[in-house]
């Protein structure tokens, strides 16, 4: 029988050598043919040495273990190594993949080794089922942000980073858009229309042709005699008017 070859990828050197030691005592015939300290290095190593098994730390610099697994899906068996708590670990329970919890215990290693031996004797799992399992984990661990979280604004020769939660409102001014926070006003180039598309619609409402408001920053909304309403904010003194076309948003509140 040919020798089974494996690689270990983890950014922490001590953890790599510990896992290597544990693996070799549970599976003396296994050959660890390489180690990598970050995502890109792991990808290169796998491409070069074509191992049967890749032990991948989930959190690695450059590219996470998940990203590495995605790229190599189907080419070798993948075992994730992770320190995540038991709730997140549920996502790892799958037919197509294995995982080891940090700190790794002898018991757990033996179980994994047994499973790996069985797996390598049966025909390869389809790349599709592996990919599916990886996507499931990726979804549970790191739901990617789809809406803007930060606004970048030029300010005093530097670039100010503003968390969107701290913004009271956006308002269009001739060429730019004014971002109002309780610390002051900042100018950005993004238009109201672009912002409306990129911000989370549940939290940021268009209240005027030229304004978007953060509903979490609102203190009260008062009706005015003309049929429009005025928004008062928690943290800033000035008010913002809601045009009649949008005032229905605040009715029955």
């Amino acid at each position: 029988m040919r020798q089974i070859r494996a690689i270990i990828a983890d950014d922490e050197e001590a953890l790599r050598s510990y896992l290597k030691k544990k693996l070799l005592s549970a599976w003396p015939e296994l050959a660890i043919t390489g180690e990598a300290g970050d995502g890109p290095a792991a990808l290169r190593l796998i491409a070069d040495s074509r191992p049967d098994i890749a032990f991948l730390d989930v959190q690695m610099p450059g590219a996470t273990g998940l990203e590495v697994a995605r790229r190599i899906a189907g080419t070798c068996a993948v075992v994730f190594v992770t320190a995540y708590n038991k709730y997140a670990v549920e996502a790892f329970e799958s037919e197509a993949l294995d995982y080891l919890l940090k700190p790794v215990t002898d018991e757990r290693i033996e179980k994994t080794v047994k499973r790996l031996k069985e797996r390598l004797n049966t025909p390869h799992l389809s790349a599709a089922s592996v990919s599916e399992a990886i996507e499931k984990i990726a979804f549970a661990l790191q739901k990617p942000a789809v809406f803007l979280q930060w606004i970048k604004a030029q300010h005093k020769g530097g670039v100010r980073l503003i968390p969107v939660n701290e913004i009271c409102y956006f308002k269009a001014t001739d060429k730019y858009t004014t971002v109002r926070t309780r610390d002051g006003e900042f100018l950005i180039r993004k238009t109201i229309k672009e912002l409306e598309e990129e911000l989370e619609p549940g939290q940021f409402w268009r209240v005027h042709r030229s304004a978007i408001v953060n509903v979490r920053a609102i203190q009260t909304v008062a009706d005015s005699l003309s049929g429009s309403c005025m928004i008062k904010f928690k943290d800033i003194q000035e008010d913002l008017s809601v045009s009649r076309a949008y005032s229905h948003l605040f009715r029955q509140m």
């Binding site: 922490e12 001590a14 953890l15 050598s17 510990y18 896992l19 959190q59 320190a83 995540y84 708590n85 919890l101 940090k102 700190p103 790794v104």
Partner: peptide, 15 residues
């Protein structure tokens, strides 16, 4: 935070 806790503990254990 569990990630920090367990990673640190595994490091100690491995050393």
């Amino acid at each position: 935070e569990p990630h920090f806790l367990f990673n640190t503990l595994s490091n100690i254990l491995s050393l």
